[in-house]
């Protein structure tokens, strides 16, 4: 069911976009993803362990992320995740899409203003 075409995955849900953006920086384990994604969302942290793993499962079956070995000093009980190539291009595509959206909105603002 995973589609190799990045655009098929768009638009991303905020939670998904948050998780993928966090993983874009570096492979990370569950708690780290949750923490950083929640920081992106701000004070109203919305991501809990359940939502996190449900989303991770979904992303794995869509082949956007995959399990990797953690760094040498990592705790063994923690599974690290990293973006797949497809995942990488999906985040890029979504970022571009959001960027265009911003531009057109600003453009519209200027016209109205």
């Amino acid at each position: 069911m995973s589609s190799p075409n990045p655009d098929e995955h768009l638009p991303l849900r905020p939670v998904v976009f948050g998780i993928l953006s966090v993983l874009r920086a570096a492979p990370l384990h569950g708690y780290g993803i949750m923490q950083q994604a929640n920081e992106h969302v701000g004070e109203r942290a919305l991501l809990g362990p359940g939502t996190l793993y449900r989303t991770l499962k979904e992303l794995r079956s869509d082949d956007l992320i995959g399990p990797v070995d953690g760094p040498g000093d990592a705790d063994a009980r923690r599974q690290y995740y990293a973006l797949t190539d497809l995942g990488e291009s999906v985040v890029e595509a979504e970022t571009r899409r959001l960027g265009r959206l911003m531009e057109s909105s600003e453009f519209a603002q200027q016209r109205i203003g």
């Binding site: 362990p49 793993y53 009980r77």
Partner: peptide, 13 residues
């Protein structure tokens, strides 16, 4: 599948 990892996240949290 996710239980042990959820528990680990909970403990870290």
């Amino acid at each position: 599948e996710a239980g042990p990892e959820m528990l680990a996240v909970f403990r870290d949290w």
